[in-house]
Amino acid sequence: MQCIRLEYDVDGENFSSAGNASESVKRTLKQMGVAPGSVRRVAIAMYEGEINMVIHAHGGKAVVEIYPERVDIYLKDSGPGIENIELAMKAGYSTATESIRSLGFGAGMGLPNMKKYSDEMRIDSTVGVGTTVFLRVNFE
């Protein structure tokens, strides 16, 4: 099947640039004429993932595959990993530091938001090795 594949390096040292990859994907989908509601769901789910990679995992790699009827997103980092995924998925649970909270994130809404705005979500994480998050958003 025909698919557009986009790859991004997410810079873990630069909080200001977090969101660059998501914005690029959003722009691409918009240009392709994807419905605005779907574009927004992809943008938010991926943006939360990108923020997570920057604040928790020193950055990583984002691979986005755009199909005619959906988007698949792979967010891969070599960060500390998630000890308890079930707990991490709870709204309000966060291991973010006070300095991250002062930036407007770390409310424990990142993973729940990613789940809320995607149709499929899988987290594969090993402590000390890293985390890969898979997100699928079907177009309306």
């Binding site: 909080f15 200001s16 977090a18 969101g19 938010i44 943006y47 939360e48 923020i51 930036l103 407007g104 994130f105 770390g106 409310a107 424990g108 809404m109 990142g110 729940p112 938001n113 809320k116």
Partner: peptide, 23 residues
């Protein structure tokens, strides 16, 4: 809290905030 904006906002066109960073 930007995470809350991303979680709860729907079609609002104006954001009022005391937070100043690029995010």
């Amino acid at each position: 809290m930007m995470s809350d904006v991303l979680a709860y906002v729907k079609d609002q066109s104006v954001l009022l905030t005391g937070l100043l960073n690029p995010q």
